Amino acid sequence: MMKALQLSKELETSLPTLSLTNLPIPNVPPGAALIKIQYSCINPSDRYNSLGGFPKTIFPRIPGRDYSGTVITLGQDSDAMQSHWVGKRVYGTGGAELGFKLDGPHAQYCLIPEKLIVEKPDSISPVQAATVGVPFTTALRCLTRSRAKPDDIVLVIGASGAVGSSAVQIARAMGCKRVLTASRNEIESPDILLDGDIGAEMQSKIPSLTNGKGVDVVIDTVGNLDIMNAAIHALAIKGRYAWIAAPRGGASTTLNVDVFESYRKEIELVGCNSGLATVEETAEEMKTLTWLFERNLIHPRDESLINVVDLDDAIEKGYRAAPSEKQIVLKMD
């Protein structure tokens, strides 16, 4: 048996309930690996899932997306594959299905599709590795889908957040000409402070920061319509705007785009959703990130910014904890 968090529903129309329970350690089918989970972080999407925010979730379901742990066994008889992977420390994330349609890693053991297992770099600790998946793959997905390249000027909106700070690192590792930051965190001295009249701030700052050209790529991790409108106007000719968020709580999600300006400048709007990532896409993203970690071109969240919580306390001190700058990571032992 294993300890696990579980989301369940009494009725189709009711909200899910989250509980700590004991479940059998799963049998390993072909194409999967059984991972003994050491750490698994709680992402905003995990909390949203626990509130019934994703219609695609099938209940009952063990939540969670990102993890680090050790391979116990594979669901195939190949001695070569078993000897290669068993005992290896691995890390990763689950793309479109883990925690939604397949049981996630907020448990002591988890089945991970074989294609998704990636060896953890020695340069990052197991607890740091558990914070990599969603933020870094989402950031990489945004930069890939917006076709960021070395001669581009990139603006990251929400640069102090988990995805935003990952995007800043990856864009610099890609050799982008210049990476500008926009944030509400004045302490970090962003290039653009998202406070007060945002449109005026961008109009006054972007031309001088880009020699009058404008921004080639915007990576928006905030999803505020006022910020989006101002940043779209700041795009250069053939500029690309990638975003991962939208207003919630009943606020309007309709963006008014000047289609005349957009076609004259050949602007592209690129929505990015890590919840649609296939197993193959996620595996390639994790391999790319591993290559960058191994060469110290990017770095995970510092352990001083991580709050480790025992699985037994995961509901009260994890899922229901007050918002904090620290990332909550569940310890499974």
Rank of each mutant, 00 (worst) to 15 (best):
M1R: 09
A4S: 15
A4F: 03
L7C: 07
L7W: 01
K9S: 09
K9I: 01
E10F: 06
L11Q: 13
E12G: 06
S14A: 14
S14R: 10
L15G: 12
L15V: 02
P16E: 06
N22K: 13
V28K: 02
P29Y: 05
P29G: 12
P30N: 13
P30A: 14
A32Y: 15
A33M: 04
Y39V: 01
S40H: 03
S40K: 03
S40L: 02
P44T: 12
P44R: 03
S45M: 10
R47M: 14
Y48H: 13
P55F: 11
T57F: 11
I58D: 10
P60L: 05
P60I: 04
I62G: 01
R65Y: 14
T70E: 14
T73V: 11
G75L: 06
G75S: 07
A80C: 11
Q82R: 12
G94A: 07
G94Q: 03
G95D: 05
E97M: 11
F100M: 15
K101D: 05
G104F: 03
Q108K: 13
I112D: 00
P113D: 15
I117V: 09
I117F: 03
E119D: 10
I124T: 04
S125D: 05
V127F: 07
Q128W: 10
P135E: 05
R141H: 14
R147F: 13
R147P: 01
A148G: 08
K149H: 15
K149F: 10
D151A: 07
D152F: 01
I153Q: 02
V154R: 04
G158V: 00
A159M: 02
A159W: 00
S160P: 00
A162P: 00
G164K: 00
S165I: 00
I170E: 01
I170P: 00
K177E: 11
R178A: 09
V179I: 11
L180T: 03
T181G: 03
T181K: 08
A182N: 04
S183Y: 00
E188C: 09
P190D: 05
D191N: 15
D195A: 11
G199F: 06
G199H: 11
E201S: 15
K205D: 08
I206K: 10
P207F: 09
L209F: 11
N211D: 15
K213N: 12
G214I: 06
D216H: 12
T221W: 02
V222G: 02
L225Y: 06
L225K: 06
M228D: 05
I232A: 08
I232N: 04
I232Q: 09
G239C: 10
R240H: 12
P247C: 08
A251H: 15
T253L: 05
T254C: 11
T254S: 15
S262C: 14
Y263W: 13
I267D: 03
I267P: 01
V270P: 03
G271V: 06
G275E: 04
G275S: 13
V279P: 00
E280S: 14
M286E: 07
K287F: 07
T288R: 13
W291R: 15
L292R: 04
E294Y: 04
R295L: 12
L297R: 15
I298C: 04
R301F: 09
D302E: 13
E303I: 13
I306E: 01
I306A: 01
N307E: 15
V308E: 08
V309Y: 06
V309S: 08
D310K: 11
L311C: 09
L311G: 04
D312F: 05
A314H: 00
A314V: 00
E316V: 06
G318V: 01
A321F: 05
P323G: 08
K326Y: 12
V329L: 07
